[in-house]
């Protein structure tokens, strides 16, 4: 199976580019909000894509830094959710 982290990173790069930002150097452990490549609407778009990509429905209470703050965290969340 393809590493989900690559797909997540690729999506972040794509969304960041629309805002004029470069997220290509974002590491899997780096904090996505702290790097500033995506603003809140951008992060929401990322979550929407994530739900569709991994066939998940995420409750708002789950939208925490622990679960979605890094690419690694997002990949772990998808794995735990059985996606």
């Amino acid at each position: 199976m393809t590493d989900p982290r690559k797909a997540i990173h690729q999506k972040i790069i794509e969304l960041a580019k629309r805002l004029g930002n470069d997220a290509s150097s974002l590491g899997y452990h780096d904090s996505i909000p702290d790097r500033g490549a995506l603003d809140s609407p951008g992060l929401l778009e990322l979550i929407m894509w994530f739900e569709n990509e991994f066939n998940l429905e995420i409750e708002q209470e789950e939208l925490t830094l622990e679960n979605f703050g890094t690419i690694d965290a997002m990949a772990s969340y998808a794995e735990k959710a059985g996606a």
Binding site: P33, L63, T64, L65, E66, G69
Partner: peptide, 9 residues
């Protein structure tokens, strides 16, 4: 509140 999104706005 351990929020992912910046709540400023």
């Amino acid at each position: 509140h351990r929020l992912l999104l910046n709540p400023l706005l």
